[in-house]
Design a binder for these strands. Structure first.
Lengths: 176, 176
DNA sequence: GCCTCCATGTAACACGTTACATGATTCG
DNA sequence: CGAATCATGTAACGTGTTACATGGAGGC
């Protein structure tokens, strides 16, 4: 149940319409929980139904018209509850690891190129994160909110670093 | 489309019934692509329909009776194709990162305990992997198949290490 | 006979993905 | 006016999750 809570978070940061949310997702929260506009509209509908958000009155409600939402107190409370709620870390679920297992049975033909391609993609992504870090979190200490945002970004950086290290290890071993 | 291919891999390693597959998933491939028995039965049905696997003739087909499957040549070919197929690495999608972003807005109440709990879980999981590594991959070099299995396990180890490192960083920073 | 376990399966739902439809606005 | 773009939405499908149903085999 992360998507509705990701949306609540984004709406608390700034009330928005569905399409705006989609755009903002693409360059911030979406790095860690992506969503298409269809998913977002669907969830906005449910959240409104549930009384956690509401459409701002001044925005016209007809089709094709912007409809801006804001979070209601019940929504903020729900989000605060969710943040502290125990939840098991989800299992690893990655196609590349499965593919390597499969290659152990049917052979590694064509796999090395694919691994190299992934390695390049992860390096690019890591460079993007590093750029964001340099731009948004330059100096020593900052406000509480910024520190948390920085830690999330650090998570992304460490995760991409993991992929790069592992893929490098695999490629080195397969070359032997 | 990883589940059918994970099943093909497991069946190539050893023809099995649905429940056997479920059990084997729980302690090998399932570390990287978990599946419940319902998913597995559903996929076995589709794979049989598609002519990629077949039920072994000697196993009785009535309800409540074991039904053992083996991979047909078409299935092996499909798996070999899939291994080399280009596929984008899936986006990061992790609730804990989202929760940290949410905490930046609604506060970190109760979050630290949850982070500590996750840290402990990842340490346990890492210890399990380390144990498997010690048991199954002790010596110098081994057969091609074993090397690949070892690399997959190394991936799991590195990934758990990533979580431990990042959670440690977050907890240190939140304590400040 | 009854209970438990093994084994296969059905049903319903939640979530994510893809393709497409429709209305409003802007700009040439 | 026509085309492109902004914005919201419908529909259909694939995959994953949860709860439950059915049948066979072995032990008390």
């Amino acid at each position: 149940m992360s998507l509705p809570h990701a949306i609540l978070t984004a709406l608390l940061e700034k009330p928005s319409s569905g399409l705006e949310l989609t755009r903002r997702f693409d360059k911030s929260i979406g790095f860690f929980w992506s969503a298409t506009h269809q998913q977002i509209y669907r969830e906005l509908g449910k959240l409104e139904q549930a009384g956690l958000i509401r459409a701002l009155p001044q925005t016209t409600p007809t089709r094709g018209q912007r409809k801006e939402y804001e979070v209601l107190p019940a929504g903020r409370a729900e989000l605060a509850t969710w943040v502290a709620e125990p939840a098991e870390p989800k299992e690893i679920r990655d196609a590349l690891l499965v593919r390597l297992r499969a290659a152990a049975v049917v052979g590694t033909d064509g796999l090395v190129d694919e691994l190299r391609r992934h390695l390049a993609l992860h390096r690019t992504r890591l460079a993007e994160y590093a750029e964001i870090e340099r731009r948004d979190f330059p100096a020593e200490r900052s406000a509480e909110e910024n520190r948390l945002h920085h830690l999330v970004l650090r998570g992304g950086i460490r995760l991409e670093t993991f992929w790069i290290d592992w893929l490098t290890e695999v490629l080195a071993e397969l070359d032997t």
